[in-house]
Design a protein around this nucleic acid. Structure first.
Lengths: 333, 333
DNA sequence: CTGTTAGCGCCTTCAA
DNA sequence: TTGAAGGCGCTAACAG
């Protein structure tokens, strides 16, 4: 069970001091004479040396990790964000450490505490939820003291908190979608609104409703998941709402569930239009291809790390545009 | 810019020694008198103390992170695995640090080196590829020396390497699928085989072909992606292969691309059957619902961390079963 | 059971 | 430019 070679081993092998080895290997401002540098590098190579990042972090007082907290990594929405975050982090020479909240506020808080222990350079939160006002305050306090201790935090789609955030244009996109559907001739709308306490869901639902010429026929709440979309659509169908001809699900995953419900109930394609939000990668490949609001989620993730790493004064928000994509799931009347 | 409180601060605040504070906060074998314990905990709470994990790692000589390396986190296959890994890691009180190889062998190697710097308790590799024999050897050497230094490695779907691995039953599942399709009356098969150098892809393709009564009509290689599935199906269509009535794509993502190609080419549904592999979550929601081979990817991810954390002698492999799921994309003749 | 005191691996003044 | 030495935050003997 050989142990990892330490910097000391490398220095000895190269016949130089610890300090010189350190300077040669992990770029410091100071310059090392070329032949020494070469010798150190060779020794490191020979020994298979890799700097112990923990030790570096302790010594430098600053680590090279960015912590990412998502609700559910198996959800394509978060997966896309994570892809953007990892890409941007890698480009910046940072390592990403990930935790999953399982959509549970308490878990979210405890994970933030855990993550703080890593003294990450930045904490990125995607999809937080605040069922409870006290939970929310606890979280904010936790994040605030993290920031006070030198870290930076970036939120995705959570612009109402006092932190940097990348704001997806939920309202604008939803309103544009509503207008577009009206233009296509739809009149009787149902909304699969998702969780009432989730800001993102509420923004989408509210903006959509507000952009309609008359109030929606029905609004049903539920989880943010495929199955909830399925159940919601069934509920809509069973409620016997008269004149229902289009349903807006506040995200694609729910919309896909809704489509499945329509199919299972034998509702003829085209009878009830369905639209989603996010333009998740499979949206174009379901049948009928899903009308939705496109958002570059990967860019949002990348933007979040950029935001966290820059040193602009803190509550700055960058906008990620959203634009309507009409596909066959809303054929027009 | 207040700095993070250290254990020393907590000890002082509580009026005890550093050692006592350490013992009270971070469970050691030693017991601390109750009133001291309470005082320390209170002080820590008051100060908002969180242990510096890096420092702990340095002092203990062992960290609490498990490193996960995937090809592409936005791919549902890897997203599901990552979900399993994070769940199992969280349950074990470990933190997961993730890196993405972008399906690039060189990047994979350099990331493994990076990750080693974190001195993780375990490294989990999903979806490695070895285009080049030398790359492969480099990787193996790197992993071997990591293991020699006390870490454990677990591979997913890569059983031919000398490490612990969770083996998805690619061959068995593919063969069963082939038999099932034959039973349904299909006779003229095409295979969208994915990358020739990817073991997983090859196993699936080969086993499927071998289980057929007569050789497949056509085998086309390409990337492991939706777009490659699309292109591959087009190629099959354009080649004018006579008698083609079923296509096996070695993963669901490709199969979905293939389905899209069929649709875009106006091939009547049911004319050419399509089957995939993995039973990714949207597989049941595309149209027609996709016949595929179900694999519990999340369980595979969880199994990988279990494997890495146990202390059984090393090259042990755990099998994850795969079973055929017939859906409407292969209606039978 | 508690406190003192070496380290853990690395970085970074500070002299030389 | 180099090396010696102190320190980062924490743990783990080791005495008391």
């Amino acid at each position: 069970m050989a142990v990892n070679p330490t910097l000391y081993d490398v220095a000895r092998e190269a016949g130089v001091s610890l300090a010189t080895a350190s300077r040669a290997l992990n770029g410091s401002t100071r310059v090392v004479r070329e032949d020494y540098r070469v010798r150190v590098l060779a020794a490191a190579e020979r020994l298979g040396y890799t700097a112990n990042l923990s030790a570096q972090a302790v010594a430098r007082g600053t680590s090279s990790v960015v912590a990412l907290l998502v609700s559910d990594i198996a959800d394509p929405y978060f997966a896309a964000i994570a892809a953007g975050v990892t890409r941007a982090a890698a480009a910046a020479g940072l390592t990403v450490s990930m935790a999953v909240t399982e959509r549970d506020a308490a878990l979210e808080i405890s994970h933030v505490r855990m993550l703080r222990g890593q003294r990450p350079r930045a904490i990125i939160l995607a999809g937080s939820r605040f069922a409870d006002e006290r939970d929310r305050e606890t979280l904010v306090a936790e994040l605030e003291s993290y920031r006070a201790s030198g870290g930076s935090v970036a939120l995705i789609s959570q612009h109402e908190l006092p932190f940097d955030s990348v704001s997806i244009d939920n309202s604008g996109g939803s309103a544009a979608l509503a207008r577009e559907l009206v233009r296509l001739g739809y009149r009787g709308f149902g909304i699969l609104a998702g969780p009432a306490e989730l800001l993102t869901a509420r923004d989408r639902s509210d903006a959509f409703a507000a952009a309609l010429p008359s109030p929606p026929l029905a609004v049903v709440h539920g989880a943010f998941s495929r199955d909830a979309g399925y159940a919601g659509m069934l509920e809509l169908l069973d409620s016997g709402t008269a004149g229902l001809d289009a349903v807006f699900a506040v995200n694609d995953v729910m919309a896909i569930g809704a489509l499945a419900a329509l199919r299972d109930r034998g509702v003829a394609p085209g009878t009830i239009a369905v639209a989603g939000f996010d333009d998740v990668s499979i949206a174009a490949d379901v049948t009928p291809p899903l009308t939705t609001v496109h958002v570059d989620l990967e860019a949002a993730g990348a933007a979040a790390v950029a935001l966290a790493l820059d040193d602009a004064p803190s509550p700055t928000v960058v906008d990620v545009p959203a634009h309507v994509v009409i596909r066959a799931s809303t054929p027009g009347r």
